[in-house]
Amino acid sequence: MFKIKSFLMAAIATVFTGTVATSAMAADNIPTQAETYAGINFAAQAKYDLSCLGTSSCDTKAKSSGKIYAGYMAAPTMFEGVNVSQGAELMYYKVGSAVSTYPSTLSTASPETVLRSTEGLGASYVLQANFNDFSLNGRAGIAYTRNKTNYSDISGTATDKAFIVPVFGLGVRYSLAKNITLNADYDRLPNKFGGDKGVINMLSLGVGYKF
């Protein structure tokens, strides 16, 4: 965890120090003390990165996806000229269904449709760099995720399996008002359906509130 923290801090400082040095900061919008926050995001796109091998049709884009989250950020410190905050975040995410269809075989008299969906509860370490009205953050943690698969064959079987997986994310926050932010996030959510391993890449937009 120390190596991850040091790497993220160094990367943020290297990329953005030049911008900070030439931009005037609005002190009112840069945190000076610890704060808690919560928010909700709806997915602009969520896609299962899974194999479509052997399918007659395969839609990897998920329907109706998003997340809710809450976190705590400690009082910020200066690192290489950048105002940096550290904290922890909890999130609940739900990724809607994606559908694959397999052609009929000797064991299935008609084509078989497979419906997948995912939900999870995660906890992450957060490192955030604060500039003017904007802040940038990186997140790394673990999640308890449940993957559901429904088969439309004669037996109508379904599976529901749970896993512990690593999760990663990046985010941008814009201060619309003193306590309100507009948020854009990318989340990388590993998953596994049967023997098929992959990830879900989710891009989401939403609003947050700082208490």
Rank of each mutant, 00 (worst) to 15 (best):
T60N: 13
I142Y: 14
A70Y: 02
R173G: 05
T55L: 06
N29D: 08
G87D: 09
S155M: 11
M78G: 01
N41W: 02
I180M: 06
M25D: 12
L176Y: 10
G122M: 02
K178D: 10
A62N: 06
G138R: 00
L50W: 07
G39S: 12
A129C: 04
F131D: 01
A177P: 00
M9I: 03
V167L: 00
Y174Q: 09
A34W: 03
D153E: 13
N130M: 04
L121I: 04
S110I: 09
F211V: 03
M91Q: 10
T19D: 00
K148W: 02
N183H: 00
T32L: 04
K47G: 10
G206D: 15
C58S: 09
K67C: 10
V114I: 13
S124V: 15
A38M: 09
K192V: 14
A109R: 03
S104A: 15
D196A: 12
S104Y: 08
S56E: 15
A62S: 11
S64K: 13
C58E: 09
L127M: 12
F2Y: 11
L189E: 05
G39D: 14
K210Y: 04
A34T: 06
S204R: 03
I200W: 11
G96K: 11
M91H: 12
A158M: 01
D160M: 05
T149F: 00
